[in-house]
Write a protein that binds this DNA or RNA. Structure first.
Length: 445
RNA sequence: GCCGUCUUAGCUCAGUUGGUGGAGCACCCGGCUGUUAACCGGGCGGUCGCCGGUUCGAGUCCGGCAGACGGCGCCA
């Protein structure tokens, strides 16, 4: 028999998070826990359940002589993912996983679950179909905890550095990155697009707040079917007046080190569950990251890998991952050819074929985790490059106004939150780093 | 846009030369007082993606269609 949810909320018990039981401080004491059945098995007059809550899993032993026949039969027939409350004594026992178990004196099923559709064998597609249920898995729980730490760390980092949070519209009339495709949205009698970047609006914000940041959803309708792409992803961006390329590269490195340090502090358990090398991540959290130019990257590829890339072509996935064979930590690559860069990235006056821009590439096969640049202040050159792309200049007059009224040198970058989480967690696919992934071929559930 | 793979039970898969469709898991019933993704016995479960063709006979061979997935390009 189930207890009513109203009745449950009226009970004034103290509930112990499962994680705390493994500190040993509750041993031989009576506790109340609540959660969901992760595994269950029975043998005659004894039922073993693994119970999970948000903090961990614990084996519960239910014996008919301790809880009575009615509660015992409920426990025996409750399927995986049934929710329940249990009272009992914590025992230290080497036979239990983790060395502790709860010997039940009472158990109350809150809701008997239907047969759970996810069993031991699952395909990636099936798990994506059942995403609303697969979120309960230990793997996704671990990743979502790390994601939460990463997002919190980004806010903490910029606020500690004196940045203000500044919001841009999600509905935007113009495109930002050249070549990327936009999601069109009906806007009353008109049409607009989902935000591809916060940046153009951020460039307006720096003239009052000087140092600003933001983190929010970003939408790109690229026809990419890879383990590194999402159609909707979260980007953490910064923009600052008076800063040049060198300044923002230093901030980007500090930001990555700060994120790593926070994750290593808060999520060691999760990193170990995900089979990540904690010592290596600790090393990277304290390291300085190498900075090379695009031209130097081509030389490394040619000299060490015999991989020849024509100067002027962008680094492709193959080249980036080959390059990363030579680096344990993230790598900063600057001065890409100006002709393949977005309209707002300025020419380097010292090396005029290149732009004052950088990418930070993650180790492994996770690709670019940060992209940024100084911002052009040359209205004539930006106008020409926008026209070459077929863009209507009228939409950018407000942006050019920023150069007409007290323009200053300024710079900014964007960090792909999911790519950073994927790299730290070592996931095969970026889809596992966001609760409900949206990709070229999937937008349900 | 280019290249490739897959589609058989609720889930994961096997299915020989073309000859009456199988296993494990899940679920149900029975057994078991220390299990670790428990185990043992039994049961339930199928329009072999769809349409057509070849054949005495097609899950299997051929053609078409549909759907799912992966890689590249592009990007965070």
């Amino acid at each position: 028999m189930s207890i009513s949810l109203g009745e449950l909320s009226m009970t004034k018990k103290t509930w112990t998070p499962i994680e705390e039981i493994f500190t040993g401080k509750f041993t031989e004491k009576s506790v109340n826990i609540r959660g969901w059945i992760y595994r269950t098995r029975s043998s005659g007059n004894i039922v073993f359940m693994t119970i999970r809550d948000a903090t961990g899993t614990l084996q519960v032993t239910i014996k008919i002589n301790n809880v009575g026949e009615h509660a015992f039969n409920d426990a025996k027939k409750a399927l995986i993912e049934s929710s329940l409350t249990i009272t009992g004594t914590i025992k230290q026992d080497t036979r239990a996983p983790g060395g502790y178990e709860l010997l039940a004196t009472e158990n109350q099923i809150i809701t008997f679950a239907d047969p759970f559709p996810i069993t031991k064998d699952q395909s990636p597609e099936y798990l994506l179909d059942q995403r609303h249920l697969w979120l309960r898995s230990q793997k996704l729980t671990a990743i979502m905890k790390i994601r939460s730490t990463v997002v919190g760390a980004i806010h903490d980092f910029f606020r500690q550095q004196g940045f203000y949070e500044f919001d841009a519209p999600i509905l935007q009339p113009n495109q930002c990155e050249g070549g990327s495709t936009l999601f069109e949205v009906k806007y009353y009698q008109d049409k607009t697009y989902l935000s591809q970047s916060w940046q153009l609006y951020a460039e307006a914000g720096i003239f009052s707040l000087e140092k600003i940041y933001n983190m929010g959803p970003t939408f790109r309708a690229e026809r990419s079917k890879t383990s590194r792409h999402l159609s909707e992803f979260w980007m953490a961006e910064m923009e600052a007046a008076w800063m040049d390329l060198e300044d923002i590269i230093a901030i980007a490195k500090d930001e990555i080190r700060f994120i790593l340090t926070q994750v290593l502090t808060c999520n060691t358990k999760e990193l170990i569950y995900l089979n990540q090398d904690v010592e290596k991540l600790t090393r990277i959290s304290k390291a300085d990251y190498p900075v090379i130019t695009y031209t130097e990257a081509l030389e490394i590829l040619k000299d060490k890998e015999n991989l020849v890339v024509e100067w002027g072509k962008d680094l492709r996935t193959l080249e980036e991952s080959t390059l990363m064979n030579h680096f344990e930590s993230p790598l900063v690559v600057t001065n890409y050819p100006v002709d393949i860069m977005a309209f707002y990235k300025p020419r380097d006056p010292v090396h005029p074929d290149t732009a004052l821009c950088f990418d930070m590439i993650a180790p492994g096969n996770y690709g670019e985790i940060i992209g940024g640049s100084q911002r052009s202040t040359d209205i004539a050159e930006m106008t020409k490059r926008l026209q070459d792309m077929g863009e209507s200049i009228d939409n950018y007059q407000w942006y050019f106004d920023l150069r007409r009224y007290g323009s200053v040198p300024h710079s900014g970058y964007g960090l792909g939150v999911e790519r950073v989480v994927a790299w730290i967690c070592g996931t095969d696919n970026i889809k596992d780093t966001i609760p409900f992934p949206r990709t070229l071929l999937r937008f349900r559930p």
